[in-house]
Design a protein around this nucleic acid. Sequence first.
DNA 1: CGCTCCACTGAACGCTTGTTCAGGATGCTA
DNA 2: TAGCATCCTGAACAAGCGTTCAGTGGAGCG
Lengths: 246, 246
Amino acid sequence: MAAEQDVTTRARIRDAAIEQIARRGYSVSVRSIAQAAGVSVGLINHHFGSKEGLREACDGHVLELILTAKRESVAGGALASLAAMSRIEEYAVPVAYCLRCLQAGGSAAARLIDHFVSDARVWIADGVASGLLKPSLDEEARARTLTVMGFGSALLALTLYTADGGDEFSPERLSDFLNHYIAEHGLPMVELYTHGVYAGTDTLDAYLEATGRADQGRTAAAAADPTTSPGGASTAGATAASPQED
Amino acid sequence: MAAEQDVTTRARIRDAAIEQIARRGYSVSVRSIAQAAGVSVGLINHHFGSKEGLREACDGHVLELILTAKRESVAGGALASLAAMSRIEEYAVPVAYCLRCLQAGGSAAARLIDHFVSDARVWIADGVASGLLKPSLDEEARARTLTVMGFGSALLALTLYTADGGDEFSPERLSDFLNHYIAEHGLPMVELYTHGVYAGTDTLDAYLEATGRADQGRTAAAAADPTTSPGGASTAGATAASPQED
DNA sequence: CGCTCCACTGAACGCTTGTTCAGGATGCTA
DNA sequence: TAGCATCCTGAACAAGCGTTCAGTGGAGCG
């Protein structure tokens, strides 16, 4: 899968740093990284200037790893491709690193998300074109929302999962977590993605009304779900009783 | 709103700690807290034993604050109640504290989530009973999933939002963020909650088939969405091409 | 008054952090 | 062989952290 191994000391330090960060988070000390890499502390700063420089090198390398891995994998959404990757043992570390990256925030996290958003944009457009997915009133926003929801919920679940029982986060613990995550949230998510949760379109109508895009809403809703009667046959009342908006 | 103010020095330290943690995260130093409270460092440990003790006192106090605030607010889902609370200026700090708590993980985060899950369970059951929400195959799992998705996506959005432009997180920045969050993700979320994303039920059927709950699935799906023909009239093919599962 | 209890301070301790630097070791080049 | 650049080490540095503790000051009380 990976190209010719980079066996320079610099690469060994970088890889050790990636694994340590994946295991223990961005706050891991350079001394731990040095020990894991089997080098002295000074050498790290000799090669990377500072801890920040090391982090940037790790970010860039992992992002590149993800890119090439995704280029090789045929298709699949953001989280699906991550889950698929984690099954391949050698990719558990970069996946965990990505989650740590999102956990820590910063520009690297923003770049990572942006990448997966533009990725989602593509396969959502494909899905809509092939009739697998319903169209949206705002495809751009939907791509971003689905990506943030997917990663955000996984990240929070991971934070809660990591909470009890040691902060160490070994690769096998990651696959444990993913199995746990899919077992717990798989059905409700597929259900949500298939049926939604609202019985009627009242909330959406009210939202479109409130934000002044009522007209495009009706037409788009009718186009999206032809089984819905275009009149007022939906359930009555309760326009402001939405559980998500008020 | 709040009961009689607690003006003891111990309470002043606790409140200063809550605000500092809300602003700068759990990693804030006790010296910063001491300075913000206008006391010496030693006094904090005199009252709370250690930084961990201070954190527990803060966690408990904020949780209690949230509880009483929710008891006063009539209804609303988890995130909605948070958003509504943040509008009241005095509750911006505990809300931000909760997000920092979830960000940091640990048992306090788990307790917070558990609380909101059991909260969601109630209003979801109410919604199903009143016909506003569709029933689910697993109401318990759905309550947990919706809660984790709601908070997780908000938390990730916040992490990305906080990334650029200072780590300080003032109360007005929180309301800025919430406005930004709702403006960006409001429509796609309502859309998702209304229509889902899948055009057909193939993915759900395939998932139920794969997990061996096919029979309860068909009946429940038919009950949930009476417009769907119970036969095989849905779009053909592509049973394994789900963008979320593979 | 003297005693005790309590809130409270400020300096210090031990520890870990990221960073720096003089110097040893190695290998290539003139 | 001499010179030089590079890789690399280990000790030291300053700064920050949470924690500890001797000691001050004032209020309540016998």
